[in-house]
Nucleic acid binder design. Structure first.
Lengths: 212, 212
DNA sequence: GCGTAGAAAAGGAAAAATTCCTAAGATTTA
DNA sequence: TAAATCTTAGGAATTTTTCCTTTTCTACGC
């Protein structure tokens, strides 16, 4: 039986190393390429044609969600497994909607990892125990709905605003013009019907995107 | 030369595995024990007397900060290195104030890891390049202290700002001039070393003044 | 009693951020 | 192919913030 070929996209060297070590006991899985950011991952996925792409959601640059979308766009059937720290329904939702076939968290037991990879490789879906439940039961308050409808960029900027970053910082972080971020901020506040960033911060906590 | 004995406290199996793999090339460092949560880590630190304790900040249960505090409480000279995803000054600050001797992020290059461990083991401090720059005195208890020192008016305005009220509204609410409130707001932000009202909102929750 | 300190309130001017409108390119969808 | 949406950002007007300063009042110590 040929090995399952993995492309691993994660900006943290430790996580990549850990991934490798955890998989050494599974002879039928092999990491054929690694990327530290989305753009590079997209490129490598075309070059190497991996069986399964494992990626993190929070990455510098275009981020995980956008990476998923772009990969799917180039290859409808790309098998993407998200491997994230986030266990909030919003994230799971967005990742699956973007085209991911599976979602597991970094909290999950090491044995979940090969299991999920095999499922995905076989064309099945795999969402970690407990996450799906959260999705269906996630109260669809107005906030939830509004936030779900955010575009990737809106969501990014929303997150950073809620965290407390100042417009200038966000622009730096996302490599955008100051005015772009300012305009998004205005738009986001309007969509959420708030007039201050403090309120926005509270909402982010309520919907489970931010912790203190 | 005897090996540097490490206790590793991190709830993510992948990270622990990665840690191990990254250190295999460094013969003088050895992981003698691992814990998946703070409580267990405290217990193991007493049992094994490691040279350096490496821990993550975000953990279920008592969390990283509290873990640091309790370990230090039992052993003043415990050498704790924080290894976190967060690169925000607030986290660095709070960790160092709690008693950590070093702070590196999971983004950092793999070579930083042994370097930091050796520094810490030798009794030095080690804070990753770039993290120290924005550090002010703003730990949990510092927030408490700062807020305690607020005058009644400052506190009022702080509360309303944290709640999400806009300057104009606060002025109305307290029957004050717009400029008065604006000036107080500036002053309050400066005292808390924050630059956005979102951060201010988070602080209010942290210190227990606000709920969601 | 009188000076000092500190809160409270707010004005003025300059700097910075926000809002609103607009628009172009890119891409997706119908 | 046309319509819709997303991303990016400029311009202008407006609003907010910042920093500095001033006035008034109260409390506290000597």
């Amino acid at each position: 039986m040929p090995k399952i070929k993995i492309l691993l996209i994660d900006d943290h060297a430790v996580v990549r190393a850990g991934f490798k070590l955890l998989l050494t006991t599974y002879a039928n899985i092999e990491i054929i390429a690694e990327a530290t950011r989305g753009e590079q991952g997209i490129q490598l996925s075309q070059q190497y044609q991996p069986d399964v792409i494992v990626l993190d959601l929070s990455m510098p640059g275009i981020g995980g969600l956008e990476t998923i979308k772009r990969i799917i766009q180039r290859d409808e059937d790309a098998k993407i497994l998200v491997f994230s720290v986030h266990d909030e329904p919003v994230y799971v939702n967005r990742a699956l909607n973007a085209g991911a076939k599976g979602y597991i968290t970094k909290n999950s037991a090491p044995t979940i990892l090969p299991e999920a990879i095999e499922f995905i490789q076989q064309g099945k879906n795999y969402v970690e125990e407990g996450l799906l439940k959260a999705i269906s039961s996630s109260s669809d308050s107005d906030y939830q709905k509004t936030i779900q409808s955010f575009s990737p960029r809106e969501f990014d900027i929303f997150r950073l605003l809620a965290k407390g970053l100042v417009t200038r910082k966000i622009a730096q972080e996302l490599c955008l013009g100051y005015k772009t971020v300012a305009n998004y901020a205005t738009q986001i506040k309007k969509k959420l019907h708030v007039s201050s960033l403090a309120e926005l911060a509270h909402i982010a906590v309520i919907v489970g995107i931010m912790k203190h």
